[in-house]
Design a protein around this nucleic acid. Structure first.
Length: 544
DNA sequence: TACATACAC
DNA sequence: GATGGTGTATGTA
């Protein structure tokens, strides 16, 4: 609690300093808030014909006065202040650059270093692959349209409370994903909003993926409505030339096939790597395709004109921070590389440079659930709930569904976190590493409750619980099985000898397992067997 | 390790 | 009157 307060005090202090500014700043500040409230998907397709200024004004007026508005206002102010501080920093660098010889030298050396780094990157540029990014157009909405033809001709969106997606008819009104329903209705009173039916969308998604499998057996779903493919093996197999026309033709064929068979229109990006393919699929949405020629010079020229926000990973905040330095495009990033190296952390800086050169990964591989880092669930209440029995019963329910998700995937967790959002939209998490792995609802609830109660008194609009440091239950158990005799193993729980057959062992352990005994076994064995094993080792164990 | 923030969809 | 849920990465202390 202490940290949050002191942080706020700092902000209050700075705010006072910033109150002494002129009208121009005041206007500017309102404009950025309006842009912020407009949401993150302003750049999405279907907005071309929209009067964005007018829409933003309506959203702003509809939001005004709410607690959400105040929270956003505060966040916007914090960002403005951060940007202003950086601008001062920049001024100082440029002043030093004019008068300070030592600094001039340092700056020049750093520029050389960066240039060497960039040359290295360029020399490793992989232009041997044809990568495709497939993106379904207004996916949830188009699945709903398939179920009910009439929806095609009326503005429609899918979601509850907050919209997940809107059809193109609705987008003409400025209706977008992540927009609250009540604002969407203000922009378009006749908007039809349908409830989500994720299982149905998942079926359609699989249908599409199955069609695409013909073109790449290793295709990698990036989300329910997005897939990356490596088209190279397909092209080679069919002895197809990798010239632009042929590639465009293959993609055209894929798009036609998907539309004809599944009824869903898709947009595709064709390029040398995933970064470029993703940008490309967004260039001509909906129901179209775009190819970035697989040539270093063309790629660099393409990137230099590209607004920074087009890069996957550069969002509203980083975009604003860069704009604060008069950086609008990836070309600007490269031209200001030395300055940026002073301002951003190593990792952020390197990422900016790499992206701006159009360099990205060409690895298209689906790791499925095996590298999952965390799993959780959260819920927003219709009215904020105060500390007490009701809140705790909500936590219990969340832990129950978390336990289900864990067991569905055969996972156990070594760390747990509780997330809360106050009625003033401040988010906090409390996390704890555990002494043992847990997975059932009782244990999850017990640990989560402890974390939650430490924060009392509370009044919150959202509660969440998340399990992390995951490992596979069967693998974990197997890792502690002792091979007592040839062709036989002993159960780690009850020690009985079992046939060395994975199915037999698993079945027995499932029967044998209950939390108390697992705890005992783990405690007893802690000293003898290292707790953490690399997942790879365990997986390798099972392959043999 | 713990927490906050940013980002994507 | 009113602004979601799930998951990842990264910076900081």
């Amino acid at each position: 609690m202490k940290q949050w307060k002191s942080q706020n005090e700092d902000i209050e202090k700075e705010k006072n300093i910033f109150d002494i500014h002129n009208d121009e700043d005041e206007l500017d500040y309102e404009a950025t808030l309006k842009r912020r409230l407009a949401g993150p998907s302003v750049l999405k397709s279907g907005q071309e014909s929209v009067d964005q200024e007018r829409i933003n004004e309506i959203i702003y007026e509809a939001s005004k006065g709410s607690k959400y508005f105040e929270a956003e206002q505060k966040r916007d102010l914090e960002l403005r202040m951060r940007i202003e501080r950086v601008r001062q920093e920049v001024k100082e660098y440029y002043r030093k650059l004019e008068h300070n010889n030592a600094f001039q030298k340092e700056w020049a050396e750093r520029t050389d270093q960066i240039d060497t780094y960039m040359q290295e990157l360029q020399s490793c540029r992989d232009l041997s692959q044809v990568i495709v990014h497939v993106d379904c157009d207004a996916f949830y909405a188009s699945v709903e349209e398939l179920r009910n033809e009439k929806l095609k001709n009326i503005p429609m969106a899918v979601g509850k409370g907050v919209l997940c997606t809107a059809n193109y008819m609705a987008r003409k009104f400025g209706v977008r994903s992540a927009m609250p329903e009540f604002i969407a209705k203000k922009l378009c009173p006749e908007l039809v909003v349908l409830p989500l039916d994720i299982p149905e969308y998942a079926v359609k998604s699989k249908e599409i993926q199955n069609l695409l499998l013909e073109y790449d057996q290793n295709l990698c779903p990036a989300s329910i409505d997005e897939v990356y493919m490596n088209l190279t093996p397909y092209m080679n197999r069919n002895k197809l030339n990798k010239d632009e026309d042929t590639m465009q033709q293959v993609i055209m064929e894929i798009r036609n096939k998907v539309l004809k068979i599944t009824g869903v229109s898709i947009s595709c990006g064709i390029a040398a790597n995933k970064l470029l393919a993703k940008i490309a699929s967004n260039m001509k949405k909906p129901n179209d395709q775009y190819l970035v020629p697989i040539e270093a010079e063309v790629i660099e020229k393409f990137m230099s004109k590209l607004p920074t926000r087009r890069i996957n990973g550069i969002g509203r905040v980083l975009e604003q921070e860069l704009l604060g330095l008069d950086i609008e495009t990836c070309g600007d990033i490269l031209n200001n590389r030395t300055l940026l190296s002073y301002i951003f952390r190593e990792k952020t800086f390197q990422n900016l440079i790499q992206c701006s050169l159009g360099i990205g990964s060409t690895i298209v591989q689906d790791f499925g659930d095996s590298y999952r880092k965390s799993i959780g669930c959260e819920i927003t209440f219709s009215n904020a709930i105060a500390s007490g029995g009701l809140l705790e019963s909500k936590l219990q329910a969340l832990c129950q569904s978390l336990a289900e998700s864990l067991s569905k995937r055969d996972l156990i967790a070594n760390s747990i976190s509780v997330k809360i959002k106050t009625d003033t939209f401040q988010v906090h998490t409390r996390q704890k590493n555990l002494r043992e792995y847990i997975f059932n609802d009782t244990d999850l609830f017990c640990e989560a409750l402890r974390l939650l109660r430490m924060e009392y008194p509370l009044r919150i609009r959202l509660l969440g619980v998340r399990a992390s440091k995951l490992t596979n239950k069967a693998s974990y158990i197997a890792s502690r099985i002792k091979f007592s005799k040839q062709n036989s193993v002993s159960c780690p729980v009850c020690r009985i000898d079992l046939k060395d057959d994975l199915a037999v062992v698993n079945q027995h352990i499932d029967l044998c397992l209950n939390t108390e005994t697992v705890k005992k076994v783990i405690d007893n064995e802690k000293k003898e067997i290292p707790l953490k094993r690399k997942r790879n080792t365990i997986d390798a164990f099972f392959r043999h």
